[in-house]
């Protein structure tokens, strides 16, 4: 067989999707415009031109997710006022934001993808019917190399009787403690209520966060975990663990 006899595919027009979207909503990567930038006016105009389109799409979505889909969905009068509110809010926001003080450090310090994501906690098969949900402990996220060894001072204050152990594992690269917040720790196993009064206080000394934990009387013993989040970057940056010893005097 001669190769010359073969038919061949036509050359491809392209071989990949064109996923980019450089239209009216787009922006140039890395551009930072501020007051006095002549392009801001053009941007505002562009925004207004698109308000109607957003409203059209948004109204449709809101209607679709309203009363039938969600309990107590949007009221009709609220929908009717959206357009005016949005125009006013957009106008004000467009005027205000360029004046806002810069927030260094708030840009993402994005950790690399991990090799393994944690398992879901709640859909494991039960050993017996109607037994309590198994709750495998989440594996800690791998610690980025650049953060290892960077110390951060933490003060812990505990209000409650008996043996309580608190540990803090800060894993991501945050520069200060003032933006830290801890989510209410929940029991790793069992159905005990969350610890509602655990907080990170940075008011007095922003660079040295104080963890305050009040353990209610009767709180079930066991291990409780709560994520620590850096509110400035919205990154999860660690885990707070509270272990309540079964020997606590107030536990029946």
């Amino acid at each position: 067989m001669s190769d010359e006899e073969r038919m061949r595919r036509p050359p491809p027009e392209r071989t990949q999707p064109d996923r980019g979207w450089g239209g009216a909503f787009g922006r140039h990567s890395g551009s930072r415009r501020g007051p006095g930038d002549p392009s801001i006016e053009q941007g505002v105009d562009s925004g207004y031109r698109l308000v109607d389109e957003y409203l059209r799409q948004g109204m449709g979505t809101a209607r679709r997710f309203s009363d039938r889909a969600m309990p107590g969905g949007m009221g009709a009068s609220l929908q009717g006022m959206q357009e005016m509110w949005l125009r006013q809010a957009a106008e004000f926001w467009m005027g205000l934001l360029p004046l806002a003080p810069p927030m260094p450090g708030a840009m993402p310090n994005v950790p690399p993808p991990s090799a393994r994501a944690p398992a879901f906690r709640s859909n494991q098969a039960e050993a017996e019917p109607a037994s309590a949900a198994s709750a495998p402990r989440l594996e800690p996220e791998p610690r980025p190399a650049q953060d290892i060894g960077r110390p951060i001072r933490v003060v812990v204050g505990i209000d409650g009787p008996g043996q309580v152990e608190v540990s803090v594992d800060l894993t991501a690269g945050h520069s200060h403690g003032e933006h830290l917040r801890v989510q209410d720790p929940r029991a790793v196993r069992g159905d005990a209520p969350r610890l509602r009064e655990v907080s990170i206080d940075t008011f007095a000394t922003p660079s040295i966060p104080t963890i305050r934990a009040r353990i209610p009387l009767g709180q079930a013993p066991g291990l409780y975990e709560g994520a620590i989040v850096d509110e400035a970057t919205s990154e999860r940056c660690g885990t707070l663990r509270v272990r309540i010893d079964p020997a606590r005097s107030d536990v029946p």
């Binding site: 922006r27 415009r33 698109l50 957003y54 509110w85």
Partner: peptide, 17 residues
């Protein structure tokens, strides 16, 4: 609603805000 307004033209505003 304010966030929606900002999203209309992200290029004009600091992402941090």
């Amino acid at each position: 609603r304010v966030a929606e307004g900002a999203l209309l033209n992200l290029s004009a505003y600091p992402e941090n805000a």
